[in-house]
């Protein structure tokens, strides 16, 4: 007569278990050992099994219990998911050298020339971008300067320097054709004052912008 077993079935992925009854022959009973990570979960309800079979079943249970658990490791399921990786367009600009102060004095003047000019190349511009074909523009905050302030990018390590230009409130190209890279250049400011313009002071705030060309 077949023995009746209650079997607990577990899903390793969901960790959900369920009990169910089923009948098994004595041979099946010997092998119907549903081991969950090395633990026997057979629970006999009634038996008409000969004692020898019971013992054999017990021995087999102990035998399997002694085996390493990993030998019975099973893949109960698999899954996958997608990882989205995004690198946004990033552009950085930095000016080194601090504030620039021009002071036009008699020492900067040639007698007979109305134009008095002074240059300063103490500042450097650093940039980095991961976007293609960028440019850097420059503009001043001063709407009506007394004197002319010119700017030129000298020796850029990347891109092409635009021609020297007088700063105004309109952004003007300083560097062109900057690709995905980092680079630096020297900022050459030239202050130009005419003697005929008299004396005075201009305070500029220069804004550099890196943007798509």
């Amino acid at each position: 007569m077949p023995a009746t077993f209650a079997a607990r079935t577990c899903n390793a992925g969901t960790r959900a278990c369920s009990l169910s009854k089923y009948a098994a022959t004595s041979r099946e009973m010997q092998v119907a050992l549903n081991l969950d990570r090395g633990r026997s979960i057979l629970k006999p309800i009634s038996t008409a099994i000969p004692r020898t079979l019971t013992r054999l079943s017990t021995y087999l249970s102990f035998f399997f219990l002694l085996l390493p658990a990993h030998m019975f490791a099973q893949v109960y399921g698999s899954g996958n998911h997608q990882v989205a990786v995004v690198v946004s367009p990033i552009s950085l600009l930095q000016v080194s050298g601090g504030a620039v102060n021009f002071n036009v004095t008699t020492a900067n003047v040639v007698a007979g020339q109305d134009e008095m000019s002074v240059s300063n190349s103490a500042s450097q511009l650093f940039w980095g971008t991961n976007s293609g074909t960028q440019k850097i523009t420059a503009q001043t905050s001063l709407g009506s300067p007394l004197f002319t302030l010119k700017l030129l990018a000298v020796s850029p390590t990347q891109g092409t320097a635009a021609s020297e230009f007088a700063l105004s409130t309109t952004p003007t190209d300083l560097l062109l054709n900057i690709g995905r890279s980092s680079g630096t250049c020297t900022l050459q400011y030239t202050a130009v004052a005419l003697a005929s313009q008299g004396t005075g002071t201009d305070n500029h705030t220069i804004t550099f912008t890196i943007q798509a060309q």
Partner: peptide, 26 residues
């Protein structure tokens, strides 16, 4: 919009220009 916002970067610098009284003859 986000890409466009991050595509630009700016930096600023102060420049002061002073012209004093000048007399020169040669």
């Amino acid at each position: 919009i986000t890409e466009s916002a991050f595509a630009q970067a700016t930096a600023t610098q102060s420049v002061t220009l002073a012209v004093n009284a000048v007399y020169k003859i040669s």
